[in-house]
Design a protein around this nucleic acid. Sequence first.
DNA 1: GACGCCCATGTAACCGGTTACGTATCCGCT
DNA 2: AGCGGATACGTAACCGGTTACATGGGCGTC
Lengths: 326, 326
Amino acid sequence: MAEATIRDVARQAAVSVASVSRALNGLANVHPDTRARVLAAAKDLGYVPHAGARSLSLARTHAIGVVLPDLHGEFFSELVRGLDREASARGYHLLLSNMHDKGDHAAQALRTMHGRVDGLVIMAPHIDPAVIAAMLPARLPTVTINTPSGPGGNALRVDNRAGAEAMAHHLVALGRKRIVHIAGPEGNSDAQERLEGFRAALPSDVELQVLPGDFSQASGEQATEALLKAGDAFDAIFAANDMMALGALQALRGAGVAVPQEVAVGGFDDVPLARYLSLTTIRVHMTEIGSRAAARLIDALEVRGAEPLHELITPALIVRATTVTE
Amino acid sequence: MAEATIRDVARQAAVSVASVSRALNGLANVHPDTRARVLAAAKDLGYVPHAGARSLSLARTHAIGVVLPDLHGEFFSELVRGLDREASARGYHLLLSNMHDKGDHAAQALRTMHGRVDGLVIMAPHIDPAVIAAMLPARLPTVTINTPSGPGGNALRVDNRAGAEAMAHHLVALGRKRIVHIAGPEGNSDAQERLEGFRAALPSDVELQVLPGDFSQASGEQATEALLKAGDAFDAIFAANDMMALGALQALRGAGVAVPQEVAVGGFDDVPLARYLSLTTIRVHMTEIGSRAAARLIDALEVRGAEPLHELITPALIVRATTVTE
DNA sequence: GACGCCCATGTAACCGGTTACGTATCCGCT
DNA sequence: AGCGGATACGTAACCGGTTACATGGGCGTC
C-alpha cells in the first residue's frame, strides 16, 4: 500500500478533496461534523500531506537554499546554526549546497534549486560577484553574506576594514613598530579588505611586511617559520584569520619566541579555538549573522515591499593573552 | 514576466512539451534539428526546469533529509560535511532539520519532510527509538546514526563500548587505580554505553567513581571542582566527551594539579580542540560517518534489493599529553 | 502500389495538492 | 408562499513537469 493521498482521505470520509483540504488547513466554511470526519479519516489512514505537491500549487516551498563555500569547520557550523535557528522558528527548512569546485558543478547545483526553495542565502567571498549573478536563477530573492556586490540585493557584510583597523590601533597602542601581516587567499574579498583596512590604519612610523597565506593553519605556520628563518626583526603578527594566527603561534612556540613579550599575535574571526588558546582576535559573530540573514530573507519573502538593504556589521576586538600579559 | 516554463519553451521552439522534455533530458528519439531548436529556445528564454514539479511527477526529489539534535558545534559541522560530500557527489541535496525541542515541533518538522526528500538520516542518541519510529513518515528509507534501535533499518553506530574499553585499558596500563568518570546526560545512549563499556573493562582492583555531567564543558569543570573540594584522592578522569574533559582540565589547571603526573585525563570524540589542547581521547571520525550514512542511504534508494545493514564503527584511541608525558 | 515498420512527434493523463466558481440546501424575512 | 442570502460542499482547472499511447510520414520490400 502506498502512501495515502488526499483523495484517499476524501473517499474514506465520503467528502470531496476540496473539503478535505479546507478541513485540514483550518479554513472557515467547513461544517464541524465534516471536519471531524475528515480528521478521523486522515488519522485513520496515517495521512501526511505531500509537501512537494503542496509547494507546487502554492508556489511556495517554505525552504531556503544555503550556498556556502567549502569553508573550514568552525565557521560553517556557527553560520548554519544561526540560519537554522531563525528559519525553523519561522517555519522554514534549510537546503544546503556547498560550492566546492567553482566550475559548472556550482552553477548546476544552483539551477536545481529552482522550484525547491523560495530564496537563497549565499556566502561566497572567494567568487566574483558577476559570476554569481550570472549563475543565479533569475528573480530568486537572495541575501548575500560577505560578498562583494554592487547595490541592489540584500546584503550582510562584516566590516572587515573596521575590524582590521581596531587590531591595528591595538597593536600600535602596545608600541609595536615592526608588524607582519599574513594575508588570506588572493581572490578573497574578506582577505583583501582586512589587509587594506589594516594598512590604512597604521601610522607612518610603523613598518608593515605582508606575507602570503591561504587561511589554513599550515600556511600561517609556514609563513612564520620562513619569517624566523629570514631573521628579520618583528614584534607583532596580524593574521587575516584565526587559523593562520594559530599556525603562527605554533611556529613561534616551536622557536622559543615569547608571546606576547617578544611578538604579539592577533587573528580574525574569533573561532571557538581562539578562546581556548587565548588568542587576541576580532570577533565575527557568525551565529548572529546567520540569524539575521535568514530573518532578512524571510522578511523579503513574506513582507510585501520589504526593500533591499545592505547591512554592515562591525566586529569587536577581543583582547586576550597573545597580545597582553595579565 | 514570470519564469519561463516548459510550455513557453515548447511554444518558442514550435514543438510540443513532450519533445522539449525529451530533448532536454537527452532521451533518444529526438531529431537532431528538433533538439537544437529546443536547446536554443531554452537558452533564449533562460529556462530552468522547476525541480519541484519534476520531483512531483517523478516521485523522486533527489534530496535527503537530515535530522539532528541541537548538538554542539564541532560535531555538527563534521557530520554535515561528510553527508554533504557524499550527497553532492551523487547528485543529492541536503535538507536540514534540527530537532531542538523534543515536543510536537520535532514531529511536525518530520512530517513536513514527506514529499520533500527521498530518505532520511537521523541522529538522535537522546531520544527513545520508539518515539522516533512513531514520528517517522511511514515507509521513508532511513539511516540512523548512533541511535539505539532494534534491528530492521539501516544503522550506523559508533562502538562506544569498544572505545571506552580502549580508554580503560590505557589508563590501567598507566597504573591508575582511582578513576573518576564524568558521565553524559542520563537519557543519552552514547553516554550510557561509554560508561558501561568503561566500567566493564576495569579490573577489580581499580576504584571507579561516577559523577553526573551533561556533555557541556561547564559541567565537566563543575564536576571536577566539586571533586577537588571533596578531597577524595583520584589519579585519572575519563569524561564521556571531550568538552567535559576540557572543562576538567581547566579545573585541574586552576587548582594547580599536574596533568598527567598527578591526574591523567581522557575524553571521547576527538573534536578539533582536543588536538590543540593535547587531550588523550577516542577518535570518532564524524566526517566519515556522515559520508557513509549518506552513501548507505543513497544505495538503499537507488540500488534495488539493498538490504538493511547495521554497521558498527570502532573508534581509535588517540594518546596525547594529558595521559602520558613525552 | 500496397503493406508494414520504424522513427519523430503530439495529445492528454497523471503526480498530489489548492482553490475559483457553481450549486444545493436551509434559514429568515416580508 | 416566495424570495434573498448565507453556508457547506463538489467539480474541475491549475501548478510544471513526465510519459503512455496515438498518429503520421518515410522508406524498404514483395
